[in-house]
């Protein structure tokens, strides 16, 4: 697993208080990991801070699963 993927998973585990085994690529933040709309906003902000990127709102809406977050950040992280 890439370093970015490791960091993404760590952030999700920390912010959503979930077990590592639950954080699969297909896992949806809201449907599988118990996030509400505010949690999702906070996750995106943590990704922005950790990877020094700015994620526009219209693109943030497309990041709904662990896998989507990892691939977005692998593409955009500086």
């Amino acid at each position: 697993m890439s370093e970015i993927a490791e960091k993404v998973k760590a952030i999700i585990i920390d912010k959503l208080g979930v077990e590592e085994s639950e954080v699969t690529p297909e896992a949806s933040f809201t449907n599988d990991l118990g996030a509400d709309s505010l949690d999702t906003v906070e996750l995106i902000m943590e990704f922005e801070k950790e990877f020094n990127v700015s994620i526009p709102d219209d693109q943030a809406e497309n990041i709904a699963t662990v896998g989507q977050a990892i691939s977005y950040l692998e593409e955009h992280a500086k």
């Binding site: 505010l38 906003v41 906070e42 902000m45 922005e48 801070k49």
Partner: peptide, 9 residues
Amino acid sequence: PRFNPFFIP
């Protein structure tokens, strides 16, 4: 601005 969404609530 990077305010946490939980700031206000």
